[in-house]
Amino acid sequence: MIRLQDVTKVYEGGTVAVRDVGLDVPKGEFLFLVGPSGSGKSTLIRLLLREEQPTRGTIWVAGKDITAMPSWKIPYLRRTIGTVFQDFKLLPNKTVGENVAFALEVLGRPRGVIKTQVNQVLDLVGLEGKADRLPKQLSGGEQQRVSVARAFVNRPPIMLCDEPTGNLDPATSVGIMRLLDRINRTGTTIVMATHDHAIVDAMRRRVVALEAGSVVRDQSTGRYEEGQVSS
């Protein structure tokens, strides 16, 4: 579903954010990207969204070489990818329902379809009855659920999560991870960058560790720290 070949990203000024990364993520996989701050996790996610172009190398998403994609096709690429971020990226002056509906409105879906799909996805993420609230009236965990709902409402084949539990307490994080796990079991490929040892160790999924932009470890059922290998 996602394939990176010898991908290197050098930012202006010479900072090497990603160095010769090769990675293959089959459909339906749940992959953790781990590593210290500045190791290149977020850059990798930005590259997959084509918010950045790699300096060298090729990236395929859903069978398409996105590094050679003309810019007018990029929105269509992004429609196949749901995104969840640490800071939720919700619009503060729109209600929960409107925030989720927004993702469908900008795709030009008919109003009736939007309404049913929004209610349906809010039920799925456990926010039934909260469609009319504003984001600031919700807890952090609930806000992140809204953001997951928005990412999933379009049923994308891929979800990219950049530290989705970074702002949440451990108990709330578990709730979000259960949600992502369920979404993954519907066949959605998930790539999640995280710092959270407990979550990675508990989920026992594929772990790719980055350090200074390079892949230093890739285990099919790994832990956050090396040396506790179980595969």
Binding site: T83, K89, L91, V106
Partner: peptide
Amino acid sequence: REEVAVMRLVGASNWFI
């Protein structure tokens, strides 16, 4: 700008924005 960023994220076409 926030709205535009989210629009781009969820794949709104350039013309739609």
